[in-house]
Simulated assay, not measured.
Amino acid sequence: MGFAAKYVRVVDAVNYRIGRVMMYSLFIMFGVLLWSSISKTFFVPSLWTLEIAQFLLVAYYILGGPYSMQLGANVRMDLLYANWSAKKKAWFDAFTVLFLIFYLGVLLYGAIDSTTYSFEYNERSPTAWRPQLWPIKVVMCIGIFMMLLQAISELFKDIARIKGEDL
């Protein structure tokens, strides 16, 4: 379990730091939305505020997901799960995380394809502001990749729990 322990330690540390930064990025989004309200009321409405707020929310959600998974803050159906032993939970989690890993792999493949298209054709948003879309698509690729790494980390932790060890 030497490699697994090191992998878990590194991936958890990186996702923890990214998650903490993203947690405070909400304040940036609040500032953008506050400016949007002020500019619409007192000045000429800004074209960029709504889209920037949407991009920030995507980054918050995508990059904060691995941190949420790490903390166990993801949503579960606790009807049966809550009453199971730690070993039974680990077996169930180890089985179901394989579906998540497959899903994230497919999602990452599509995200990389979409990002490549965005770079090749200089894709822009169809709004009046027309920002380039590649920056948010790159953020999405990074976030999905980090979520994939975190899912593998959770698999290693579950396997260790099944063996009676703790990473």
Rank of each mutant, 00 (worst) to 15 (best):
S114E: 11
Y81C: 03
Y103I: 04
L50I: 13
P131W: 01
I18Y: 10
R9I: 05
N74G: 00
L33V: 10
L104I: 14
S37Q: 13
F30P: 07
S118N: 02
A53C: 10
Y61P: 01
F102G: 08
N122V: 01
F99P: 00
T115Y: 02
W48S: 09
A82L: 03
S39W: 05
D93H: 06
P131Q: 06
V11W: 03
G19V: 07
T115R: 00
F43C: 02
D12K: 04
Y16A: 09
W91G: 12
Y24C: 02
F55G: 07
D113E: 13
L56W: 01
A128D: 13
L79A: 12
I101G: 01
Y7F: 10
S85N: 07
A94C: 07
D93E: 07
M23R: 07
K88P: 11
R76D: 01
W48I: 04
L47Y: 12
D93C: 06
G64L: 11
T116K: 04
W91S: 05
N122R: 15
V75R: 05
G105R: 02
I101A: 05
W84K: 13
G110T: 05
V106I: 13
G105H: 01
L79E: 12
V97F: 07
A86R: 15
K87E: 13
K88D: 05
P45S: 06
P131E: 04
Y103L: 12
G105I: 01
W48P: 02
W129K: 04
L107H: 01
I38C: 09
K40T: 06
Q54C: 12
K87I: 09
T116Y: 05
L79R: 10
A59S: 12
T115G: 01
S68K: 03
S25V: 11
F27D: 05
A13F: 04
I18V: 15
D78A: 04
A82W: 06
T116V: 10
L80Y: 08
L50E: 11
L79V: 12
V106Q: 00
S37L: 14
I52A: 13
V11G: 03
T49P: 08
W84Y: 12
V8F: 11
L133H: 03
F43A: 14
N74P: 00
A59T: 03
R130Q: 15
L108C: 10
V97G: 03
Q70F: 13
Q54D: 07
Y117W: 02
F55W: 03
E120L: 08
V106W: 00
A13V: 03
F92H: 07
T41M: 15
Q54L: 10
E120N: 13
T116G: 03
G31H: 07
P131R: 10
S25G: 01
L63K: 02
Y103K: 02
A73Y: 14
W84T: 15
W91L: 12
T49I: 00
W48M: 11
